[in-house]
Amino acid sequence: MAEEQEPLEILSARHVVEYPYTRSVGAVIGRFLGGLKDKKIEGSLTPSGRVLVPPSEYDPESGASISDFVEVGEAGVVTTWCWVAEPLAKHPFDRPFAWALIRLDGADTALLHAVDAGDSSRMATGMRVKVRWRQQRSGAIGDIECFEAENLGSQDGEIV
């Protein structure tokens, strides 16, 4: 009779990856991310008059450097979206939510972010959404906690 097989032992080793350095994000990306810390959203203005949000360091049409900025609104329109019924481990929510491209008022391009809508039936292309700011902001894209439907009224999480 065959002997019972030993279960296979899985070899594993701890491996820590470290990047022991910091780097500057530069004049354009740094200005945008720094603005978020102050609840301000700025786009870059191209020579042909387009407002790019998030800002680009160069004009996508000509490749020219960009140094002009324009403040845009913290509300805008959903240009496309998808519904995540089962979020993955690294997603910004552990409950169902939407990813969306959002064209903020005054911008010509769309920003990718999450929309906390509760249910897919509350999402639609063309709907208006506004920023929900994170209380603790650090100058990163995550300073925008998410977007939410504009008609919900103010849900600003700031504690006075």
Partner: peptide, 28 residues
């Protein structure tokens, strides 16, 4: 999630949108 690492490292990757979700934005 691994494919999220090819995205813009400042504006997009920190949010971890996955490859299927991004394709779904295009499909919509």
């Amino acid at each position: 999630e691994v494919l999220s690492l090819q995205l813009d490292p400042y504006y997009v990757a920190p949010l971890w949108p996955d490859s299927i979700s991004l394709a779904a934005l295009q499909a919509r």
